[in-house]
Write a protein that binds this DNA or RNA. Structure first.
Lengths: 334, 334
DNA sequence: CTGTTAGCGCCTTCAT
DNA sequence: ATGAAGGCGCTAACAG
């Protein structure tokens, strides 16, 4: 329970100077004797002195920690986003506190409270599928802790946010399938609480309408993102008298589970039924029959951008205006 | 740059009591007026007071943060381990600072220094493939920050560590292949710096010897865990006049890349050449031809155990004796 | 039951 | 060029 790092006080004592002098030497303050500065730096090396950022916090009011709250680290999409966040924040001396919400609203709320308690200087959030409100984000703002949302954003929230142009992505995916001569296209969509769900639907409908294909309500399923639900809804699609020829999945994980159901029921992937999905996860390249296309959303870049905005909000608390950044997605054919 | 959380001082002022009283009320100190306590709690709610753990740190000498350093969050193995760590530490009010080393020693070293600077109470490390020394871990110990290693451990290090019984795992994997009638078995092993590499080799050799199969030195390759190297070494194996019938891979990611090379060169997976690997990653179940067996290493449990040991080291700094915990692995046939 | 005092490690005026 | 003093938010003796 006790860090025993040497303190400035000890260095000062061994050098027979005041703590102030040591402090200034460490900050390369101009008005300090060259000789003294050198001695201090030597001793710092020798004693392995590390400044106590916790104490600095009390003065400067910042911990150089930021918090990240997201559904699952195990989804590559999010771990890539973390990498983007980490790379831009560490450059500025910030570390990253990671908490998983597991798509549970209560956990998400607790995570944010906990992060505030731990004194983070800012928070980046990708909300849980359950989350329907942004009041828990307000709490952070109230404490002067800026919040930036990414990917799973709540657009009516007052926070800056970074997300990809899902409507366009979904539109292009459907257009691609239609160009392949497919017309009966189903949509395994996400939970209705998510903005991203609505946008996929918009792109889907838009493309169908443009190509004058009637929208079949039975082809549109809303999932809660659990495996069981994916299996159930896929079976519902496969039980229809007018079988869909293709499925646009909410993301690759959903596609994978759905594809498995199809295979088990004797459908040949990308022959009897085609798949297109979001995320473009790298491991799909190992599949014999991956989705024929996937919408790359550049999670690393999204994390990067979100971190940049947050860093800016932290550094210039005054000038922080709400930003909405759209990362262009890209349809990758396989 | 400024958290504007209400402080105890303000609560005290509004209630016309001293800060101490508020402090005690908050801790449910026995010697405090019931009435006062209630008033304090009410005001805390109303003002949204959150204790400043940074300030508490100065007294208690603990930040309730722990650091985790590991190669890649994008490897499911590690993100599962994080979940195990997170679940056991959050129970005790600790948060997790995550830093990725990307298998680079310098990054790992910098990560540890940074974590110390951020005042973490303890650190959990899975070392980079490049790492050959544990001197950078000593630095933490010197600062009174306990360190626990997991999975990628350095066993001659003075730290507690948690790892799986790789020798047994490799042995069972090879025995399994032999029981399938395969005798020419190659080993795509990890970098020689890792303990885990040597252990895989031990298990491999032991099994072959027990079944009186000569060890062919050309069947044993040491990889640096990059994709390029995996491709190169797999090609070397496939160029041998006596082709291996099976390959034991360092882990599933290696197996996947290696399998792809085999496929490209016209070998049929699990017909012409069989694969077995470590990790038992969930997404392998989506493959048409996954490795016929994989050694499950229970990363979640490993993280959990490492966190438990660390929590104990932090809470009882005196009684911390070096522990070495072995998590039993399990051969999963597919 | 409550208040006073001192101090955790560091930074920042204000003096010297 | 250097020191002394005060304070960031909180806790913990020590007094009442």
């Amino acid at each position: 329970m006790a860090h025993n790092t040497p303190t400035m006080k000890e260095i000062a004592k061994r050098l027979g100077v005041s703590v102030t002098t040591v402090s200034r030497a460490l900050q390369n303050h101009p008005r300090i004797g060259l000789r003294t500065r050198e001695q201090v730096h030597e001793l710092v090396q020798e004693m392995g002195y590390v400044p106590n950022s916790t104490a600095i916090y009390l003065k400067k009011r910042c911990t150089f920690n930021i918090g990240v709250v997201l559904p699952f680290l195990t989804e590559q999409f999010f771990s890539l986003a973390i990498s983007g966040i980490e790379d831009t924040t560490t450059k500025q001396g910030y570390s990253v506190l990671v908490v998983q919400s597991r798509n549970n609203f209560e956990r998400e709320k607790a995570a944010i409270t906990s992060l505030i308690k731990h004194g983070v200087d800012g928070i980046i959030v990708s909300v849980a599928s359950e989350t329907q409100t942004y009041l828990h984000l307000d709490e952070a703002q109230k404490h002067g802790v800026p919040v930036v949302l990414f990917d799973r954003v709540i657009k009516r929230a007052p926070n800056s946010c970074v997300y990809s142009d899902i409507v366009v992505g979904a539109y292009e995916a459907i257009a691609f399938l239609i160009s392949r001569g497919l017309r009966r296209i189903a949509l395994l969509n996400g939970p209705n609480t998510l903005q991203a769900t609505e946008e996929r639907l918009r792109g889907y409908v838009k493309a169908l309408q443009e190509y004058e294909i009637p929208v079949n309500i039975h082809y549109i399923k809303s999932l809660n993102l659990t495996k069981e639900d994916t299996i159930r809804k896929t079976n519902e699609l496969l039980n229809l008298s007018e079988l869909p020829q293709a499925i646009l999945a909410f993301h690759d994980y959903i596609a994978l589970d759905s594809m498995q159901v199809c295979k088990e029921r004797g459908f040949r992937i990308n022959k009897d039924i085609f798949f297109v999905s979001f995320s473009n996860l790298s491991f799909c390249s190992y599949l014999d029959n991956p989705p024929i296309a996937s919408i790359e959303q550049f999670p690393y870049e999204m994390g990067e951008k979100a971190a940049q905005i947050l860093m800016n909000d932290i550094t210039n608390p005054g000038s922080s205006i709400r930003q909405e950044v759209v990362i262009k997605s890209k349809l990758i054919q396989r």
